[in-house]
């Protein structure tokens, strides 16, 4: 198996507080990973580090054996929906078309084939009929479909999704997960920050459990154990009992 992301001894602190400590992690190509851990465990920070959005203080992170800057096109990020100006004058199509931006040089224009790909991505997510709507006019589930369509349109190899199932309807969740599960068959690698432990087994091949440090990672069967969950969630275990998972 080929490692597509390689994290060696990565630590990150913010405002003199350690967010992540000494992470060693290899992500295999063509697998779908769940990234779990309690709030404030550093899941989003890990994503931002892989994406090169924060400066790495200690350790190294390589993507496809090199610096992220050389592989921007191949990595796509779907952040949490919260930090978006929904009044922004952009239609669904405008947003999806953004997926083609990394493939264009400064003086290149978007062409008919880019538009066709955006149309295809809209169709794949079942939102072709919303093409000309302003993004703020959509429901939460529809908005999430737009961002997933954009990521499909980018034709990336690595997908990083931060809590894609928050605040959306059941149908959209099913649609998104069935789409995500198809991607590893094309050799793509998916990392999903996830908080619903009851669906972990159903959704992912592999799991990464973190709580400021790496608790465990590997196949679901061997890694997603009561013991590891206990370690990752510590004192919050009582809440988990209520979900009926452990």
């Amino acid at each position: 198996m080929k490692n597509i992301i390689d994290i060696k001894g990565f630590s990150f602190s913010y405002d003199r507080k350690m967010v992540l400590t000494n992470i060693y992690l290899e992500v295999e190509e063509g697998k779908i990973y769940g990234v779990i851990g309690p709030n404030g465990a550093g899941k989003s920070t890990l994503f931002k580090a892989i994406l090169g959005l924060i400066d790495i203080n200690v350790g190294t992170i390589t993507v496809k054996g090199g610096h992220i800057k050389k592989h921007r096109k191949e990595v796509v990020y779907v952040p949490q929906k919260s930090d978006i100006d929904w009044q922004f004058p952009a239609t669904v199509f405008d947003v999806v078309l953004m997926g083609r931006y990394p493939h264009k040089g400064i003086f290149q224009r978007l062409n008919a084939s880019d538009r066709a790909m955006a149309d295809q991505a809209l169709a794949d997510m079942g939102i072709s009929h919303l093409k000309n709507r302003q993004i703020g006019e959509l429901s939460g589930g529809q908005q999430q479909r737009v961002f997933l369509a954009r990521s499909l349109c980018q034709e990336a190899e690595i997908y990083l999704l931060d809590e894609p199932f928050v605040g959306i309807d059941v149908t959209t969740e099913e649609k998104i997960i069935s789409m995500l599960k198809k991607l590893p068959l094309e050799g793509k690698t998916i990392l999903v920050i996830h908080h619903d432990l009851s669906t972990v087994r159903e959704y992912f091949d592999k799991i990464i459990m973190i709580n400021q440090r790496l608790i465990a990672h590997g196949d679901i069967e061997t890694t997603f154990t009561e013991e590891n969950i206990g370690k990752a969630y510590g004192g919050q275990l009582t809440i988990l009992h209520k979900t009926g998972e452990i």
Binding site: R72, Y77, I84, V95, P102, I106, F107
Partner: peptide, 22 residues
């Protein structure tokens, strides 16, 4: 006109623009 995509992306979602190498 020339930098329209860059202006659009950074204005709409600067984080995404950054991950796209802008």
């Amino acid at each position: 006109i020339v930098f329209y995509r860059y202006l659009f992306a950074t204005t709409f979602q600067s984080v995404i623009a950054e991950t796209m190498g802008i």
